[in-house]
Design a protein around this nucleic acid. Structure first.
Lengths: 184, 184
DNA sequence: TTTTTAAACCTCGGAGTCGATATATCTTGC
DNA sequence: GCAAGATATATCGACTCCGAGGTTTAAAAA
């Protein structure tokens, strides 16, 4: 998803892609060569991208990768109907956010933000005692667990705040677009 | 690591462990049976835990798992010298935080928090233009990318604030412990 | 009485990822 | 003139993890 998402902006070669994906995913989590190049080949076989050999600007020749219409469709499908992990896993959700603008309908964009918002709304119960009863932060003995829950709560509120503002704006824009089409 | 960490608190059976790990890791990311049970067996083979069959309280018999001294040592080793991902990947870092209190030396605890703090200090450059130059948030066209960077920045500051306070407290406690031992 | 449901455990195959290794190209320093 | 290092691409085996399926046990529902 990140590969196709970046290629939507402009053509890139593998080495460049590697660095961009690394900077984005999980914030500087490197992606291995053994992962990247087979994936590129898979996307090429699926006709999601085309390859054009160009002289390397500094060294060995590059394979400039360009996204196709099939690839764009695939990307949109992934964005429109993501696996559950893309909503609940922070790292994956960040990837969603990074490319959500490629979903051009503001209503579809708002829908995704709403799904994330709904997920964040559930109260976090991270730790349980021997009987299975959830332990509230103030009854935790470990200061690290206490901090973990505090940070979790605080960062959730920050994101919820942004999500609400963004959803409102998107819905307004969607409503405006509808009114435009209806000529009212 | 999460398995041994939870078993440090009190003995548990696999099914219970599954739910606890799921609640913690990535906040309600379920862990598959096909991952859990082979891992338990691996830890048992490595003598990190022992198994004692007990009648199931509700249904089928349970295998109560208890951590051994070897397991405790292993857990401490993982906490003391974690793979890089445990500092840079939010999900994994949360697992670190959840069990860091099992590292009993406050100086070692502070050291880990300091490593995380150092990582968070690096300015996040998530997106780059065609020339490879980083794009600051205000020049991003996508509101989602802009929001991503804002949220990232804000949540980082929240965590840094907590880290600093916690590190100071731990160092004070460590210093106090030293003074106690030196009898001054 | 039988069926269903839930608790609890386990295995296997496939998919995905990584680390090591290899190769080609160009620039820079010695 | 040559070695070193960065750029750039690729493959292979090992490892991890998941999902699908299957088993046993007991309680609850039919």
């Amino acid at each position: 998803m990140a590969i196709l998402g970046f290629l939507r902006d402009f053509p890139l070669h593998g080495y460049d892609l590697k660095n961009r994906v690394a900077s984005l995913a999980g914030h500087v989590r490197p992606i291995a060569d053994g992962t990247l190049y087979p994936t590129i080949k898979k996307l090429e076989d699926a006709q999601c991208l085309t390859r054009r050999t160009a002289p390397g600007s500094v060294a060995a020749p590059r394979h400039m990768l360009e996204i196709t219409q099939t690839g764009t469709d695939q990307l949109r499908r992934w964005l429109r109907d993501p696996e559950p992990g893309f909503i609940t896993d922070d790292n994956k959700w960040y990837v969603m956010l990074a490319f959500l603008h490629h979903l051009e309908n503001p209503r579809e964009q708002a829908l995704m933000l709403a799904r994330r918002r709904e997920f964040l709304d559930q109260p976090a119960q991270l730790f349980f005692d021997a009987d299975g009863a959830p332990i509230p932060p103030e009854r935790l003995e470990s200061p690290f667990r206490k901090g973990l829950m505090q940070i979790h709560r605080s960062t959730n509120l920050t994101e919820i705040d942004w999500l609400d503002r963004q959803i409102a704006e998107l819905n307004q824009r969607a409503g405006y677009a509808v009114r435009q089409r209806e000529g009212s």
